[in-house]
Design a protein around this nucleic acid. Sequence first.
DNA 1: GTAATTGCAAATACTTTGCCACGTA
DNA 2: TACGTGGCAAAGTATTTGCAATTAC
Lengths: 140, 140
Amino acid sequence: MSLYDSLLETAKKAGLRRTKALEAILTCFTECNRPMTLSEIISCGHLAEKCDKATVFRLLQRLSSKGMIRRLGLHERAAYFTLLVPGQHRDYLICTDCGSIEAIEAPCPVHKLEEEIRNKTGYANLYHELEFFGSCPKCH
Amino acid sequence: MSLYDSLLETAKKAGLRRTKALEAILTCFTECNRPMTLSEIISCGHLAEKCDKATVFRLLQRLSSKGMIRRLGLHERAAYFTLLVPGQHRDYLICTDCGSIEAIEAPCPVHKLEEEIRNKTGYANLYHELEFFGSCPKCH
DNA sequence: GTAATTGCAAATACTTTGCCACGTA
DNA sequence: TACGTGGCAAAGTATTTGCAATTAC
């Protein structure tokens, strides 16, 4: 079974109706296997001129609540800024319910991979961000 | 030398002027060692009622361009959504100049740490996001 | 004195909601 | 038919800019 069919089936089981918008958005995600913004999705060809922005927005919400897609990053609307202290690197553990952010004590396990990427891809000024998300003990 | 003094010195060397806003924002970052939003920073006590939102915004831009702070996450204003395929996990490599996003082939090195965190902290529904940022070969 | 910085207000941009019409099951 | 879904328009919230006044050096 193709990815598209599998997604459609999952959506149906989750109680979503099979609408033009659902088909279009799943096709879009199937073809573009990378994170996309709302406006990228809307202007994706499969949806362009066919679905309203609000429709896609609400459909993204539904798919997200069914665990079929995920919104990347910290889930607040506002941007987060963090201090950079030379020689110090921090990864974070974030509660998806109350939004609390705490730094992780454990040493970051990513530096080796970062080095590999630096060498293999030719990217410059490489750095990374690592965040763990979950529901903290107080919240669940 | 305290962290605050060190930051102040760095800022001075970077050509920033020692203004009330700079002092307040550095104090804020020094005391709250975690990522903060613009409005959190503004209502932080050290800045409340003293600095305009636009002032803080532009100061954050300056500090960011000097490498003293960093804005977390994908640097677009819009939210990103990604497909969740069961059994598949993706990390990303993102160009800080052109914004291109590509998936990383290498196996994710974080699962072990995720397991540790799950056990030690009692967080539920744990997942993570790992992004590498840098300037891609085309852009630099 | 000069150039960087600030405050205020307005302009943008993205997100989210209300309401009623419509389509799926 | 009943209820989830869609389209349009408006509201809400965060970000960003213009410009004249102020301040650091």
